[in-house]
Computed example of a mutant assay.
Amino acid sequence: MKRFLTFIFSITIAFSVTSCQKWKGEHTDIYTYTPPAANPVSDKQPLSCSGGSSVVPVKGTMLSGKTYNVSAGCDLVINPADTLFLQPGVTLNMGSRSSIIVLGTLVSNGSKNQPNYITAPGMIKNDVPGGVAASADSAYAGHWKGIIGGPNCNLMVLRWTHVEYAGYAEGSATSAIASSGANNQYSILFANYKGNFVMEDSWLYGGVDDPVRVSAGKIAIFRNTFEKNGVHGGDCLNVKGGTTGTMAYNLFIGTATNGQKASNKGQATGAPQTNVVMYNNTFISGGYRQVQSGRGG
Rank of each mutant, 00 (worst) to 15 (best):
T6G: 10
T6N: 10
T6F: 04
I8N: 00
I13H: 03
I13W: 04
A14Q: 06
F15G: 09
S19R: 07
S19W: 08
K22V: 11
W23M: 11
W23I: 15
H27L: 01
Y33I: 07
A38R: 09
N39D: 13
K44M: 12
S50Y: 11
G52S: 09
S54V: 13
V56C: 05
M62P: 09
Y68K: 08
D75A: 12
P80H: 05
T83V: 14
M94C: 08
I100Y: 01
I101R: 02
V102T: 13
G104M: 09
L106P: 06
G110W: 06
G110D: 07
K112W: 01
A120F: 11
N126L: 05
S135N: 11
A139Q: 03
A139C: 07
K145V: 14
P151W: 00
N154F: 08
M156P: 08
L158N: 06
Y165F: 15
A166Y: 09
Y168P: 01
Y168S: 13
Y168K: 06
A182N: 08
L189K: 07
F190D: 04
E200Y: 04
E200D: 09
G206P: 05
D209E: 10
P211S: 14
V212R: 00
R213P: 01
G217P: 00
F222R: 11
N224A: 04
N224F: 06
N224K: 00
F226Q: 07
E227K: 12
E227P: 02
E227M: 12
K228L: 12
N229Q: 08
G234N: 05
C236A: 15
C236V: 14
L237N: 12
G242D: 01
A248W: 02
Y249S: 13
Y249F: 14
F252G: 07
I253N: 11
G254K: 07
G254W: 00
K261Y: 15
K265G: 03
A271C: 02
T274E: 02
Y279R: 15
G286F: 01
V291F: 00
